[in-house]
Computed example of a mutant assay.
Amino acid sequence: MKPKIYIDGQEGTTGLQIHDRLGERDDIELLLIDPALRKDIAERKKLLNSADIVILCLPDDAAREAVAMIENDSVRVIDASTAYRTAPGWVYGYPEMSKSQREKIKTAKRLANPGCHAVGFISLVYPLVSLGILPKNYPLTCFSLTGYSGGGKKMIAQYEQEKTPDLLAPRLYGLTLRHKHFAEMTEVTGLTRAPVFCPVVDDYYKGMATTVMLHDDMLCGKQTSRTIRDELAGYYAGQRFVKVAPELGSGYLNSNWGAGTNDLMITVSGTDGETLLTARFDNLGKGASGAAVQNLNIMLGLPEETGLI
């Protein structure tokens, strides 16, 4: 019997992308709601309790309400909102963190899909903390450049249909330094000192470049850009979707690298005493819907790349 999957909130940007990735597959049964009933509580509740795995693509409060409607104990949940990313009892959905994380995802009843900026940050910072290279109290700074699709339908319409001159240049946001991904960036990596994080949105559809800057003499051991690159390459060796560039960065790094895929590329750059770490990926791929499908595959015991590029 094919596993039944229900996407609650498939009308949004992430939900549509997940639906597109799952709609052509013949190894699952995709439960669909009548468009006229998509806000009908009774119909949604029926589908939420009929699926083997539910994928929630909803705002935080709506995601909490949906979880509360699930009474069938066998239903497993992947939530793409911010609501549960640091919640007790929920597994964080970045399988490349460690072997144990992938095993946790495989058996998870409740899984929180990572935030896009957080994926970039965690892919760079978690391994270095885990390897004992980056002190947990290091004063980290991070900026993360993203395409406008990460802002959802409203922002997409602004850039594509209602563009004003201020949208032609990069725009910094999250200026309170408490962006909604901030909590998971700090907690998942085990940092004891919160990073200073500033996201930037620019006039292109999708793609993300998340960058962390380091002073080598504040790290543990005698580190250089080359040793850090080699350590990260070893950490991610054998991973299907996360790769480390073989050479130190030079020239330009385009922030729309990997658009349309579930790939993430880490590039280490630097000079004497200073290192620049950059993770590039599709904010709608490894940063959202692609990650959800990868996690779904792991939970179903399927090859992780099933239905993904």
Rank of each mutant, 00 (worst) to 15 (best):
A108Q: 05
L124A: 09
P95S: 07
A157Q: 06
V188G: 04
A83D: 03
S100L: 05
N283S: 11
K99V: 12
E274A: 14
W90I: 08
A169K: 12
T211G: 10
N283D: 11
R85V: 15
I133W: 07
A112T: 07
G251D: 00
G151A: 06
I7S: 01
T224L: 10
Y159R: 08
G12N: 05
G273I: 13
I70T: 02
Y252L: 13
A291Q: 15
F143I: 08
T267H: 00
N295P: 09
G147S: 06
L140P: 14
T278C: 13
G115M: 14
A66C: 10
D217M: 04
V67C: 00
Y205I: 11
V196P: 00
G190A: 05
H117N: 08
Q161T: 04
L31W: 06
M218S: 05
K136N: 12
I133L: 11
L16V: 15
E304Y: 00
C116R: 15
Q17N: 10
L111H: 09
Y126F: 15
T146H: 07
I33R: 14
I7N: 03
R64E: 03
V196R: 09
Y138D: 06
I5L: 12
A51E: 13
A108I: 06
T278P: 03
Y173P: 05
G132A: 14
G150E: 02
K4P: 04
V201D: 07
T107D: 15
K39Y: 04
P246E: 14
D40Q: 11
G290N: 15
R240D: 05
G115Y: 14
K153P: 03
L276T: 06
P170H: 09
E160I: 04
S149N: 09
G287D: 06
P127F: 01
Y159A: 12
G285M: 01
I133D: 07
Y126V: 12
D73M: 01
K222G: 08
N137R: 11
E304Q: 01
G152D: 03
L172H: 08
I122T: 06
G270C: 00
M208N: 13
Q101V: 01
M97I: 08
N256V: 05
A42C: 02
M208P: 04
L30E: 10
A194H: 08
R85T: 11
Y252E: 14
L22E: 03
L37A: 13
E43I: 07
E160C: 06
I55C: 05
H117Q: 11
V188Y: 01
L56S: 02
Q161I: 00
I156D: 08
N137T: 13
T82L: 04
I53N: 10
L58M: 15
A42S: 07
A36R: 13
T146K: 02
S123I: 11
